[in-house]
Amino acid sequence: MSVVASNLVWGVRRKRIVSDVSLSVAQGETLGLIGPNGSGKSSLLRLLAGLRRPQSGRVEISGQDISQIPRRALARQLAFVQQNAATDTNVSVRDVVRLGRTPHRSALSGWSAVDELAVASALERVDMTDRRAQPWQTLSGGERQRVHIARALAQSPRVMFLDEPTNHLDIHHQIEILRMVRDLDLTSIVALHDLNLAALFCDRIAVLQNGVLVACGRPAEVLTQSLLRDIFRVQAEVNNIDQTGRPHIRFKTG
């Protein structure tokens, strides 16, 4: 399922946070969204997921304007994984993943075999089947993030948005989660801070600066020495180590 955004504009009061962003993501593609702090990544992601209404411009999934789709119908097609979503409620892993079935159930419908299958396979996908009865509060950061992704998968979406899913995780879990997202048969858009991980796991990378889309393309085309200097204000050496076109960035201290 493709995602096409055209001329998105959004802001609060007089401050413009996303200005005139247009991009398109093809079916099954993984797009990385990078940019310095405050560049508008999270806001853009929320506009694309329909959680905020753009002041102008529109988002289409498979050619349909998302502002015309009811909230619940939209949630059956696209899932959104927030960064560090937390709760004080004493819920189990399974309870959390079950929430993903919310858009598929009406007020009176029971728990169906389809629901059960979706939850079971989502738990399996993130390797948390054995821990399904464990209380949420006892999970580590990486496990919580995996459970959030399982919940998003239980929505049976065709598009997934992830806002910095690897924050606060160790390198093993960062790679594990991004590999999982890449291997999913979904169109996904991931906001990331780690440029090397973005280069490794994303099909294409979009770069935001002050709410403007300044570059979008394959990692090797986008992640250049001059872009890193101009946008991220770092001196770095970019090596294209192999034939896959995945660049490796080595930062210089001064």
Partner: peptide, 19 residues
Amino acid sequence: RALDAFTFGDEDAAALGVP
């Protein structure tokens, strides 16, 4: 069911299709 979806906050509930 909609109340359950508020477990992780308003935005999360909205992402789960709750008005």
